[in-house]
Amino acid sequence: MKQFVINVTPGPTFLHHLSGKTKVMLFGTFIFYTLMSFDVRLLLPLFILCLVALISLKPNWKVVIALFTFIFFMNLINLVLFWLVDPDVGQYYTTDTRTILLSLGNFFLSRETFWYLLIRQLKLMTSFMVSLTFILAITPSEFAAGLYGLGLPYKVCTVVSLAFRYIPDIANDYENIKISLQARGLEMDKRKLNLFKRLKDNLFILLPLIISSFDRIGNIANALDLRAYGLLKKRTYYAEHEPTKADHVFRFIAIAVLVFSFAWIGSRMIWPPVTQMWTPF
């Protein structure tokens, strides 16, 4: 199985050292900020901020660039589809005018549509950057601890941390089942089989994998029960530390961004209602 993008051990940089709750708070508010705005003046600063944060995390750039290109082109294909189906798609979101930039036979690209598609791409990429920064800065245990810090019931948080604990076991089981099926004569070579046959063969591995995984519920649940899991109403997390000075600052920033977002929605979208985005023209 390939390497995950999320780290399991905490990294060395400043952002890694923030507590789980702070990271989840920052992520939540910034994703909310991204989703509510369709405005280049709000999105571009965040995009640059995320880029700076990403650089400060010293990630494995090969993976990051591969992911970025993948997401970029996935969304680009989407945009081209939007444009092909309705070349006027931008008019609803920008201004009612139609200024043709270039035309190819029946198809044309108007300035409004181009602007709209550009901003949508920026918005999707900003949302992706916020997520990626968060994913690279946090570990699964911190994520669970952070969710608990925000008031989720800890049984739900356990789902997250336990699920991550279980993923290497799944990988192990998968390999074992694959090897034993190969020993019984199942062809696994990609070059020798067509797609449909390969799908069917994969199913032969997946069904035992799924069933054996669920068979283990009893054992794990007993082990947890023996350690008195679920006895008390509260829980502390080993991965979570006391908030430091930096944590307090960043939590304050997160709350400020949230307040700003609500103020923005209240003043820009609800009253007076504005459906059109800001344009330079």
Binding site: M1, K155, T158, V159, V160, L162, A163, F164, Y166, I167, I170, A171, L195, L199, N202, L206, L209, I210, S213, F214, R216, I217, G218, I220, A221, L224, D225, Y229, G230
Partner: peptide
């Protein structure tokens, strides 16, 4: 109860792994 928590966790793990590696 604990059994449900574990079952849901294993389900979520399998769901995640299969979504990343088990799709066409």
């Amino acid at each position: 109860n604990t059994k449900t928590v574990v079952g849901v966790a294993i389900g979520a793990a399998l769901f995640g792994v299969l979504m990343v590696y088990g799709g066409v």
